[in-house]
Amino acid sequence: MKLLIIRHGESQADLLDVHEGRADYPLTETGLDQAKKMANYISAHFNVELIIASPLQRAQKTAEILQDKCNCVLIVEPDLMEYNNGVLAGMSRKEAAIKYPYPKEGRAMHVAIEGGESEIDFRYRVERILSKIQSEYKEVECIAIVAHGGTIMNLLNCAMNIPLANSIKTFTDDTGIHLIEFKEQDVFIHFLNSTKYLD
């Protein structure tokens, strides 16, 4: 099974300097253009049989653009949503720094910000959806997952069996693509955060 793990295109939140998370902002015109270029590239180089996407509109719209090019089934999966950042969703970074400053000593992994989820809860949610994908769609050779930066970072750490306490901080550009492959007990990383189609 090959997984093309893709971040959504640029969203309105990127221009507003706000905490996004569960705030449901649409794609910008640039984001739509990024998604079209990504979809053209993937449809020309991969035989995507199934797309699974977060329901947040920036990801779902990116996935719909990809679906239009790949002509395959699109499944919306709530467990692929971005980190639940509770009261911070949609709040300006300047206001958040005053009202909800990040603790100097950091936030314990089991502690959630008000109205949100903890790092442990987030990781568990991503572990669950990856397990579901590997179990329920194991006969599918190539699946595209369209999600968010934090979700993708957790997906990659889960796929490589890296414990939460030792997580590797992976960055994903707008519409960046990671390709991983599961073969029996092995995980192959073909490439990470490719955006060459945007050049």
Score class of each variant (00 low, 15 high):
residue 1 M to S: 06
residue 2 K to S: 14
residue 3 L to Y: 15
residue 5 I to S: 08
residue 6 I to A: 12
residue 10 E to S: 01
residue 11 S to D: 08
residue 13 A to C: 09
residue 14 D to Y: 03
residue 16 L to A: 06
residue 16 L to N: 11
residue 22 R to D: 09
residue 24 D to N: 09
residue 26 P to I: 12
residue 26 P to G: 00
residue 28 T to M: 00
residue 28 T to K: 05
residue 29 E to R: 14
residue 29 E to H: 14
residue 32 L to W: 11
residue 32 L to A: 10
residue 33 D to V: 12
residue 35 A to D: 00
residue 36 K to L: 10
residue 39 A to Y: 03
residue 39 A to D: 04
residue 39 A to T: 00
residue 42 I to P: 02
residue 45 H to S: 03
residue 47 N to D: 11
residue 48 V to R: 05
residue 51 I to K: 02
residue 53 A to E: 06
residue 59 A to S: 12
residue 61 K to D: 10
residue 63 A to V: 09
residue 63 A to H: 05
residue 67 Q to K: 09
residue 68 D to I: 05
residue 70 C to H: 07
residue 73 V to T: 15
residue 74 L to V: 11
residue 74 L to G: 02
residue 75 I to T: 13
residue 75 I to S: 05
residue 76 V to Y: 06
residue 76 V to Q: 05
residue 79 D to R: 15
residue 84 N to R: 02
residue 85 N to H: 03
residue 87 V to D: 06
residue 87 V to I: 08
residue 88 L to G: 04
residue 90 G to A: 05
residue 91 M to R: 00
residue 92 S to T: 15
residue 93 R to P: 12
residue 95 E to V: 04
residue 99 K to H: 04
residue 101 P to L: 06
residue 102 Y to R: 13
residue 103 P to N: 07
residue 104 K to F: 13
residue 107 R to I: 09
residue 108 A to G: 08
residue 110 H to W: 10
residue 118 S to Y: 07
residue 120 I to F: 06
residue 121 D to C: 07
residue 123 R to C: 12
residue 132 K to M: 08
residue 133 I to M: 00
residue 135 S to Q: 13
residue 136 E to W: 11
residue 138 K to G: 13
residue 143 I to P: 13
residue 146 V to K: 05
residue 153 M to N: 15
residue 155 L to H: 09
residue 155 L to M: 15
residue 155 L to V: 09
residue 155 L to G: 09
residue 155 L to K: 04
residue 156 L to V: 15
residue 159 A to K: 00
residue 159 A to V: 09
residue 160 M to K: 08
residue 161 N to P: 04
residue 162 I to F: 07
residue 164 L to N: 01
residue 165 A to K: 14
residue 165 A to N: 15
residue 165 A to W: 10
residue 166 N to C: 12
residue 168 I to W: 04
residue 169 K to Y: 14
residue 170 T to E: 02
residue 173 D to H: 06
residue 177 I to F: 03
residue 179 L to W: 06
residue 180 I to P: 08
residue 183 K to S: 10
residue 186 D to R: 13
residue 188 F to P: 08
residue 191 F to E: 10
residue 193 N to T: 02
residue 193 N to W: 07
residue 193 N to F: 02
residue 195 T to N: 01
residue 196 K to D: 13
residue 199 D to M: 05
